[in-house]
């Protein structure tokens, strides 16, 4: 089985979000970049398939040279090789188009992507990619088993979960649950050494088409001060919630 894991390179969850150039660009100054958390769960599941079922694991990113440390980290975790499409990921449509070309040319059986990237939260790349490549698709995937060309996936739904029976080729948009937090791997020295020697292929983009652009960014308005209510005066809290906030 040939697996492709899509890796998006995103600001660490603790990052302070600021903008430059008249609020048109994300300010990367002082920002630490990491593997998108949803993709890290997916990569870990891919490693399980590699170790237990003899799959090969390629990782792919659409991004500039600055994403290479993130890709090396994913190689150190255990992916076999990496592909980088050398382009600024302008929007989800553009990324999905570029990835579709990689998927078609590489004949991957299973593509693992994240439910959403935590920077732009588009939640659209995996679904578009599946549609462009005519593959089956399961979103919000929290469990995945493969046997031959059959797949059983568990999907989170509002208020529960459902089990889906499907076939390869398959694209999943995954999240925590596909593996547990404790299964995540920290690269060890040997992994890091080996990652240096693994193949990282850089390809040029084949299209430049995108659907959207961001005209400007804005930060949420500052919040007013909290109203503290004495713990021995809970009637006041109830009254505030009822009469002032009108939420109960």
């Amino acid at each position: 089985m040939k697996i492709l894991v899509c890796i998006s390179h995103v600001p660490d969850t603790t990052s302070k979000i600021n903008f430059t150039d008249g609020d048109t660009k994300f300010d990367t100054n002082g920002v630490q970049f990491v593997i998108n958390p949803n993709d890290e769960f997916g990569l870990t599941r891919a490693m399980w398939f590699k170790e237990k079922q003899g799959a090969s694991v390629t990782i792919v990113n659409v991004g500039g040279p600055e994403t290479e440390p993130t890709l090396r980290k994913a190689l150190a975790i255990g992916a076999d090789e990496a592909i980088r499409i050398n382009a600024t990921p302008t929007d989800g449509f553009f990324v999905a188009k570029e990835l579709a070309k990689v998927v078609s040319e590489g004949n991957y059986d299973l593509v693992i992507a994240g439910r959403e990237s935590i920077d732009y939260n588009g939640g659209m790349v995996p679904g578009m990619l599946a549609t462009f490549t005519d593959a089956n698709f399961v979103n919000m995937c929290i469990g995945l088993e493969i046997e031959g060309t059959s797949a059983t996936a568990i999907r989170e739904i509002d208020g529960g979960k459902e089990t889906i029976s499907t076939n390869l080729p398959l694209v999943v948009g995954c999240q925590k649950g596909i593996v547990e937090e404790k299964d995540l791997r920290i690269p060890n020295m040997r992994g890091i050494m080996m990652a240096r020697k693994k193949q990282l292929t850089v390809l040029e983009p084949s299209t430049s088409e995108s659907h959207t652009k961001i005209a400007s960014f804005e930060k949420p308005a500052a919040k007013g001060a909290v109203k503290l209510v004495d713990k021995d005066n809970l009637d006041e809290l109830i009254s505030l919630l009822h009469n002032e906030a009108k939420v109960i």
Binding site: I17, N121, H211, T212, A215, F217, K219
Partner: peptide, 15 residues
């Protein structure tokens, strides 16, 4: 919203 509610993005559509 973008950056998980840490910001807003005014998005312009080209299609």
């Amino acid at each position: 919203t973008a950056f998980t509610n840490k910001a807003f993005a005014m998005t312009e559509v080209d299609t």
